[in-house]
Amino acid sequence: MSLYDKLQQLGIQLPPVSTPAAAYVPFVQTGKLVFLSGHIARHEGKPWVGKLGHNITTEEGAQAARSVAIDLLGTLHAAVGDLNRVKRIVKVMSLVNSTPDYTEQHLVTNGCSELLGEVFGERGQHARSAFGVAQIPMEACVEIELIAEIE
């Protein structure tokens, strides 16, 4: 099954690449690696605002991280032209806007990691970091970046 068939089965339509909010590009390829810039969580086209441990639950944060994964897939598609060329998702780094005492950043990030696993199977298993941070641009609850290897 093609990755696009899998996305259709999951009810996912890839979004276009978002316009960068500052002085950077959405992705850079060097050799066989593609580095995607951080993507913030969006809900209904606007930043998904909130702070984990204050006004967003872990479950809501995981949903936000899943939405980021979909945006990342849209950018990765634009970067490589065909997601079937992805040999491996290498690394995911997640920043979770959270209170100082919140410690479930890893569970929030699972929203992204689990979707990548559903779409890519074994090729979607990746190294990962999940950090709690005091703030994210535009008050977003989650920001995630990704590194992929292509054929």
Rank of each mutant, 00 (worst) to 15 (best):
G117V: 15
T57M: 03
P100L: 06
A62D: 02
Q125S: 14
I89T: 05
T58A: 04
D82M: 02
L107P: 02
V119Q: 12
Q105F: 00
D101M: 07
V108F: 01
I147E: 12
F131Q: 14
G117M: 15
L115S: 07
V34P: 03
T30G: 02
A41S: 14
N110C: 02
L10C: 09
A22Q: 09
A140V: 03
L14R: 12
I70W: 08
N110Y: 06
H54L: 14
N110S: 06
V68Q: 13
V133E: 00
T19V: 09
G61R: 11
Y4V: 14
L36Y: 02
M138V: 01
R66L: 13
F131K: 14
G11D: 12
A130R: 05
H54Y: 12
N84K: 09
T57G: 05
D101H: 12
L33G: 00
L14D: 10
Q13A: 13
L7Y: 08
N84V: 03
I40M: 05
G111S: 11
L115E: 08
V119P: 09
S18L: 01
L116Y: 08
V108S: 02
L7T: 07
A78P: 13
G124F: 04
L72Y: 07
V90Q: 05
P47G: 08
R42K: 15
M138S: 01
T75I: 03
F131N: 14
G38F: 00
E122W: 06
A69M: 10
G117T: 15
L95T: 02
H43T: 07
E59F: 12
A69W: 07
L115N: 10
R66A: 15
P137A: 08
K51H: 04
E143N: 15
S18A: 05
S113Y: 01
G45Q: 01
V86T: 12
K51L: 04
F131H: 15
I56F: 06
L33T: 00
C112R: 02
T30K: 07
S37I: 01
N55Q: 13
Y24M: 00
A127T: 08
T109F: 01
V34Y: 01
G121I: 04
K51T: 15
G61W: 09
M1W: 03
T30M: 04
Q105E: 09
L36I: 12
M93S: 15
A130W: 04
R42G: 05
L14C: 11
T30N: 03
E149T: 09
E104H: 14
L14M: 13
A79Y: 00
G31K: 08
A23H: 13
N110L: 12
V68F: 13
P26R: 11
F131R: 13
E145Q: 13
D101A: 11
V49H: 08
E118K: 15
S18K: 03
A62T: 02
K46I: 04
A62F: 01
E139A: 14
H54M: 13
A130Q: 08
C112E: 07
A23I: 08
I12W: 14
V92C: 00
Q125K: 14
D71E: 08
G50P: 04
G38I: 00
P100C: 06
H54W: 11
G121H: 05
A127K: 11
G111R: 10
A22H: 09
K32P: 00
K87Y: 05
V17L: 04
I70H: 07
H126C: 10
E44T: 04
Q29T: 10
T75K: 03
L73E: 03
